[in-house]
Design a protein around this nucleic acid. Sequence first.
DNA 1: GGACCTCAGCCAATCGATTTCTGGGCCTCG
DNA 2: CGAGGCCCAGAAATCGATTGGCTGAGGTCC
Lengths: 327, 327
Amino acid sequence: MADVARRARVSVTTVSHVLNETRFVAPDTREAVLTAVRETGYVPNTVARSLVMSKTDTIGLALSSISNPYFGELAHYLQAEAERYGYSILIGDTRDDPEREFKVARDLHERRADGIILAASPDPGRTLEYLRMRQVPVVLVDRLIGSDLDEVGTENVEATSHLVEHLASRGHTRIAMVSGLAGLATTLERVAGYRLGLERAELPYDDALLRGGSSDAEPARGATAQLLEMPDPPTALIVANNKMTIGAMRALRDAGLSVPADIALVAFDDFAWADLCEPRLTTIAQPHQELAAKALELITSRIDDPDQPARRIRLDPTLVHRNSCGC
Amino acid sequence: MADVARRARVSVTTVSHVLNETRFVAPDTREAVLTAVRETGYVPNTVARSLVMSKTDTIGLALSSISNPYFGELAHYLQAEAERYGYSILIGDTRDDPEREFKVARDLHERRADGIILAASPDPGRTLEYLRMRQVPVVLVDRLIGSDLDEVGTENVEATSHLVEHLASRGHTRIAMVSGLAGLATTLERVAGYRLGLERAELPYDDALLRGGSSDAEPARGATAQLLEMPDPPTALIVANNKMTIGAMRALRDAGLSVPADIALVAFDDFAWADLCEPRLTTIAQPHQELAAKALELITSRIDDPDQPARRIRLDPTLVHRNSCGC
DNA sequence: GGACCTCAGCCAATCGATTTCTGGGCCTCG
DNA sequence: CGAGGCCCAGAAATCGATTGGCTGAGGTCC
């Protein structure tokens, strides 16, 4: 910038004012500055700018791995929305591990992200404590813990309950579920919804029909296999996320079962290939784009006004009816 | 930091030296500083640090949308590898649009990313020119243009050629291809490989059997549908990326064709659901993790020594043999 | 002709670190 | 006893911007 100023025979002050249009500058001077900028190929240094403005126009994302299509999609929309507000995105991968989550959050804060969008791990206490102490603007996504923070996520309890009721109304009485990583807010809610649905359908809750799949394919495959080995196996299966669906389907295939003839299958998280599987999968689609839009609305407004009351937003997922549920 | 210094009754100099272990500090003083740090909950300001060190420990990613599983996976591994080197990741979405690509690159540079990993758009000239002028360390991934820049990507020509030869050896004479976005380096290479394979198998090249699918599902669906409507339709189909595979499969389904009985299908990009489709898809799997590892090796070494000669790395993809090819 | 404005642009402080230079206190040694 | 060395730590310059306050030139008004 000093270089530009010298070249245009003005002070850095003037250059700054021209570039930011923050004060009137005489047309001639202005032109001289602009020319000098062009000639030198000057690129503003955002780092210096951030230092004095004490804002980086950056939002940190602390999500579980973006190789998971759900989070990948979410990250994509978050990035797109952030861009609309003039923010860039710094990503961090928590791997759903509280320890890593803490490190990611700290790093994001050290880099002075203006705000952090966090999909909380199963045990986010320390991270949240850290962020709260430093008054970092935070919005929780996907996994909502009902704290005093802004939160936006999918409605899980009723959605899962409806699913169970629906299956029950189709005559199923042995409805199993492969649930996600223990402790995760979404896991708790979906399990709660599962039990609520059974209750409403006046079906007994059988502990053996609820198995943990750790939110990943292989564990889910094992869990599903065990369900199928029961003396009185389920006739319907709910899988609580996309990765576990892979495992579940493999287990079903290994057991030589056909869906939905032998067993009905419904899965959380819709994805592009869901209607190309055999059979076409009935899924619960989460509203990625809306979630992202709301998350950015919340974080930007929180950044602008840190003291406003917290907002909690729940968006309804959509049941995408295909063949695997047997309807 | 001034706060910490005051509290520990030392100068900021000393605090800095304690925190960075950059000079010996008497144990007592050291302890005092550390205590003060703990008491104040001090968090170093990386922005200020970056300003004086003129490095941000940040690497910019300019990729096509990470909602594409291929790039999502790649981004994931890039992030993981970056972390090993102590870098964080700033993401930008080019949407394969030269204009957006340029803006993303400029933004990344204005934020002073220490290096940029770029998956070039169909027409990356301006962007590359801009980055070259400013001497920004750059590594090209996936789409290699054979410039004087470091590059790492998958070997496409031979891989595609082998595929064609393989299909030919199984008796196919009408082998079609749905190719990606025009101009993309990967598209050009895969098409070249397609033609090379035909030549080697001594099959005639038929213009009508090569259709563009614009790297996306819907266009690919249309392209596939048109291929199927030919008087003398293909008996084998190669699809040049994951998203287009979705479209192609839909078109096949719409046409009531069964794979591989009526038509053999092979697709670029492996993904978790590929073996859950009906039939299980034969794919060409790209080595995400190795690509990412190499990309980071290149970019870090380029950052450390900007003047070294450029390196170009091609990694071989793996043919994942399942049922859709009819073997 | 002098008081007073307005206009356009410069000076210098500031953000929060890193790092070079400097210097005080205490030992040691000739 | 004085010079030279060590040990520690502080003062101040620096990175590249933003911005409040100031100033000099020129114009207006009475």
